[in-house]
Design a protein around this nucleic acid. Structure first.
Length: 992
RNA sequence: GCCCGGGUGGUGGAAUUGGUAGACACGCAGGACUUAAAAUCCUGUGACCCUUAAAGGUUGUACGGGUUCAAGUCCCGUCUCGGGUACCA
């Protein structure tokens, strides 16, 4: 028996890791007699870099919750798996020639080893990997269910396509118009009768059904990235460049699979009200869905061409209709050619050409630039017959609303700038709220110059106008969403193949018995460049038979992640994606922990798939995650050195010495300190050998001439990242280790601080291999053990907060564990507990801790629970308490945080079973009660004295006692105070 | 620009949601043990003032106002950091 030392920790942790696996203590079974609790981590993408200390933050939290819920009597499901399809593995394959299947498996093994070291209680029997055919069989199967569904807007839920066909056969589509309002049949119409339906051939019928399917194939504007040779989803494009790599992205039409998520916009929005996500997360999703309520208004047109009789705009402010001074149509809008007058044709053509010449990136960069052209056509305001000029401009987007707007310059900032720029008249309908220089989008103004709306408050005006528009048949209420359908095809190899076969260009679902459609073996991952994926290279696979072929695309990584939480419930089922009994029992995920970067993509798709499966009757819940917690990112603390670079580049650099300048010297040089510059020149001069001293003079470095240095040399400005393990703030950079690490700099010279240290610059950046600032959890475990790592990561601060990693306080946590261990050990480490009766003081410490810790874990406030354990250990240490009746419950309570050490103690306390099978001790309020409390007495807000009151003394009696007390008398000089304030359990304030 | 969320000692962070601000930990200083160092333990530690000492006082939660017996917490304005979004009518 040794003390709680490094060696002992290693022994203990190895022992329990092995024992947990051997005894299958984490195996979870469906047990209907117990309440369930489902704790889920966002499963990781197994990247080649392995884990750094940032990754486990959320996993540690979920592990604590899982262990805690288990000892609270719940049957806990706490699984882990891997999001194993994806682009990085494929790119790695292209660069290194290693098949994604192989590199992915290697990475997964490494991840599992690292996760195992931290002591997580995952039930690995339930592991899933999205790239496993027995898993993606069901991803494909669910995709086919979505393909076989349509959204019945009347019932606001998904139904089978067969239901839709029945409807068409009876009543045509008059009650269920095309979800895509722009779609027209060959006849030019957008509706058909039952008779017409029956007359269509199969291909035509399938084409129509495709317009309704929730997973559909269509020519869509997609984000094409030439460099990656693939299409990207909207959320993978940031500021016109690709999310990975930052390559330019252009719009391009391709025949793609999409998920009709827009049909679920309203339900996805409403669902947010019943789930426990953080406000910011809900806000992000709401913004993404982007609901706006308004009206569609039809304006008649007057033009020398009368090809189009009217135009329709979407507005959220119909009450401003008398403030409309111009109309703006998107340049891409098809009506532009039909309304442009002969006189304006030249100008319009010029403008269209300009728009076409502008790249996506330019457009985004120059959002503020005001451009446009007048079409020569006029719209007629239906209420006052005013003629309104119709313009086209880039600032109106073809893809949103109707692609046309009514310009109300006094109320809308963009419209105002447009009017000012083109000197269009501005009608003021909001009186003093508009000052002539800036638009005011208030809802609180009383309308003026607005005929029948005059005198009405704007918010009230909305309903009045809409009613009138509807009466006249020239407008309706309308809701628009920013969210677009989700592109679901990727031109990649390493993903799920689409389980369909094309016959005569029409996709047919594969039969369930033929699933999974396996990803074929291939070593050719290069895209064909034509927009088809690498699978197109495999002719034998693509061509199934005469005029029958497969889809060359694969699904995005989101597909496998959209339902994995369901598979964990019944991972080995080969008849269903999960059995009904398991789905009903495990039900929703009670807590889901992961990063906020998945706010819009993964979480929305997972919610969508759940809703579709629920609509189709497979699930009895339609929100997958009851509660979501976003753990903060742990950032790295990077260090770098500053290299002096010579401004004359004509000279061969290898002749010139490598000079590194310490941070403060550099700062001083930048401030123009000539002593600091001289320090540098001296080092350079010393470094130059006799032959190159001529060169030194030639480049302007002569001993004692600091003015020849260029303080703005770029490397003095930015700096070179170094491996953070080479640096210690108090000792400075380890120069020998640095030279060893970068042999290129073996002969480098260093300009040191006055005290002889080399100090590095620092910056908080994300942890990344390329910044050399990665801290590997294995290193921490090696020197402190997994329990310390776990507790320290929790102690660092609130779970949801981002924070830079540093190990400054880790000793404190380590000391706590040792102190706790020592409570039950005597001298050099002999285990010894006493069976004596605990004192009331000791019981108070125990129950106070239990109560606080329980409350903290329930609130996911792990940092404060760690503090609470520390206080408890301090108090018990100073009481020299080693009583079993105190220590044993604390061992259980601590076990979620420090599982290895507590298992060991649990065993030493004489228990045969794992501490995981113990019960979390109940605290007893009785021990927390005091017979009397000392209340501080404030007089006029200042604490003047303390008084003792019995616990249950009524408020009035306390008041009487306070008033009668000498201290108050002294202050009031005999007069009765104005007021005595008694707050239960806290403060008494006396106001004189 | 708009929408969220923050700003508390030298540092990470507490504060029962309006009730003694700074818990807990790091760091630092002093002390004990030691030939010495490390480790460990004890004491102190927001700033300022006063005092031989005990004690006491002033000030203090980004800044400026306000409400209240009482404000880190609520209200108004300003500055600032982080996240989301980007012409969505």
């Amino acid at each position: 028996m040794a003390e709680y030392s490094k060696d002992e920790i290693r022994k203990i942790e190895e022992k329990w890791r092995k024992r947990w696996i051997d005894s299958k203590v984490y195996k979870t079974e469906l047990d209907a007699s117990k309440p369930k609790y489902y704790v889920l981590d966002m499963f990781p993408y197994p990247s080649g870099a392995g884990l750094h200390v940032g990754h486990p933050l959320g996993y540690i939290a979920s592990d604590i919750v899982a262990r805690y819920k288990r000892i609270k009597g719940f049957n806990v499901l706490h699984p882990m798996g891997f999001d194993a399809f994806g682009l990085p593995a494929e790119q790695y394959a292209i660069e290194h020639g290693i098949h994604p299947a192989i590199s992915t498996q290697e990475n997964i093994l490494n991840f599992k080893r690292q996760l195992g070291n931290i002591g997580f209680c995952y039930d690995w029997d339930r592991e899933v990997q999205t790239c496993d055919p027995s898993y993606y069989k069901w991803t494909q199967w669910i995709f086919l269910q979505i393909f076989d569904s349509w959204f019945n807007r009347k019932k606001e839920k998904a139904e089978r396509i067969s239901e839709l066909i029945k409807i068409f056969q009876v009543e045509g589509n008059s009650n269920h118009s095309f979800p895509n309002s722009k779609f027209k049949l060959d006849t030019g119409k957008d509706d058909f009768t039952a008779t017409e339906w029956k007359s269509f051939n199969e291909k035509a019928q399938r084409e129509i059904l495709m317009q309704y399917r929730l997973a559909y194939l269509a020519y869509t504007d997609v984000n094409w990235c030439e460099a990656l040779g693939t299409v990207l989803a909207n959320d993978e494009v940031i500021n016109g460049v690709s999310y990975r790599g930052g390559f330019p992205v252009v719009k391009r039409q391709m025949r793609q699979w999409s998920l009709r998520i827009t049909e679920y916009a309203e339900r996805l929005l409403k669902g947010l009200d019943e789930i426990d996500f953080s406000d910011s997360m809900k806000e992000i999703q709401r913004n993404w869905i982007g609901k706006s309520v308004g009206a569609k208004v039809i304006f008649n047109l007057k033009s020398d061409k009368s090809l189009v009789p009217s135009m329709t705009v979407f507005t959220t402010r119909p009450e401003t209709i008398f403030g409309v001074d111009f109309m703006v149509v998107a340049p891409e809008h098809e009506m532009v050619k039909d309304i442009t007058s002969a006189g304006q044709q030249g100008e319009i053509d010029r403008y269209l050409k300009y728009v076409e010449s502008r790249s996506e990136i330019e457009r985004m960069a120059e959002v503020k630039k005001i451009t446009g052209a007048f079409t020569g056509a006029y719209a007629i305001n239906p209420f006052n017959n005013k003629q309104i000029p119709v313009w086209i401009s880039e600032y109106v987007l073809a893809g949103y609303g109707t692609g046309a707007i009514m310009g109300v310059p006094c109320g809308d900032e963009r419209d105002h700038k447009f009017a000012k720029h083109f000197s269009l008249p501005i009608t003021n309908i909001i009186g003093k709220h508009y000052d002539g220089t800036e638009a005011n989008s208030t809802y609180d103004a009383i309308l003026e110059n607005s005929e029948f709306l005059n005198g009405l408050l704007m918010k009230d005006g909305i309903n009045v106008v809409v009613r009138k528009l509807e009466e006249l048949g020239i407008g309706t209420r309308q809701v628009n969403y920013k969210m677009r359908d989700a592109g679901w095809s990727r031109q990649r190899y390493w993903g799920e193949p689409f389980p369909v076969v094309f016959r005569d260009d029409v996709p047919y679902a594969m039969e369930e018995k033929d699933l999974p459609l396996r990803l074929p073996e291939s070593n050719n991952f290069k895209s064909s460049g034509s927009g088809e994926g690498p699978l197109a290279n495999l002719k034998d696979w693509i061509n199934v038979g005469p005029d029958q072929r497969r889809d060359s695309n694969t699904m995005p990584t989101h597909a496998g992640a959209a339902w994995y939480f369901l598979r964990y419930m019944d991972p080995h089922n080969d008849k269903e994606f999960a059995g009904k009994r398991s789905l009903d029992y495990w039900n929703q995920v009670d807590v889901y922990i992961g990063g906020s970067e998945h706010a819009v993509a993964h979480l929305l798709y997972a919610r969508l798939w759940t809703k579709v499966l629920a609509d189709l009757g497979y699930l009895n819940f339609d929100e997958p995650f009851k509660k979501l917690i976003n753990q903060g990112k742990i950032t790295g603390d990077s260090r770098f050195v500053y290299r002096y670079s010579f401004s004359q580049t004509d000279f061969a650099n290898e002749i010139l010495p490598q000079i590194f300048v310490s941070k403060n010297i550099r700062d001083r040089v930048l401030k123009g300190d000539s002593n600091a510059s001289r320090k540098i020149t001296e080092v350079i001069w010393k470094a130059l050998d006799t032959t190159s001293k001529e060169i030194g003079e030639a480049v302007g470095v002569t001993s004692g001439h600091p003015q020849s240095l260029d303080p703005n040399a770029p490397s003095l400005e930015t700096g070179l990242h170094i491996d953070i393990s080479l640096y210690d703030e108090s000792k400075g950079l380890d120069l020998e280790a640095f030279k060893k690490w970068k042999p290129d700099f073996a002969n480098a010279e260093f300009v040191l601080e006055d005290d002889g240290r080399y100090l590095c610059g620092s910056a908080i950046e994300k942890m990344s291999k390329s910044y050399f600032n990665v801290v590997n959890p294995d290193e921490i475990i090696d020197s402190y053990g997994a329990d310390t790592l776990r507790m320290y990561e929790m102690f660092l601060g609130p779970l949801e907060q981002s924070k830079p990693w540093n190990t400054n306080g880790i000793d404190g946590v380590y000391k706590f564990l040792r102190r706790f261990w020592n409570l039950s050990h005597e001298g050099p480490g002999n285990f010894k507990v006493s069976d004596a009766e605990p004192t009331r003081e000791e019981l108070k410490v125990l129950h106070k801790t239990l109560k606080k810790v329980e409350g903290d874990i329930d609130n996911f406030s792990f940092n404060t629970s760690v503090s609470e354990f520390m206080i408890c250990a301090n108090e018990l240490t100073s009481m020299k308490c080693n009583k079993r009746s105190i220590i044993e419950p604390l061992v259980i309570a601590l076990s979620p945080f420090a599982p290895h050490m507590t298992e060991e103690l649990w065993e030493k306390l004489g228990h045969k079973d794992s501490v995981l099978n113990a019960q979390f001790p109940k605290y007893n309020e009785e021990y927390l009660k005091e017979s009397a409390f000392n209340y501080p007495i404030s007089i006029n807000g200042k604490v003047r004295a303390e008084m003792k009151f019995a616990l249950d003394m009524p408020k009035e009696d306390i008041e009487k006692m306070v008033l009668a007390s000498e201290i108050v008398m002294k202050w009031t000089e005999g007069k009765a105070p104005k007021k005595v304030i008694v707050v239960l359990g806290r403060i008494v304030n006396v106001v004189l």
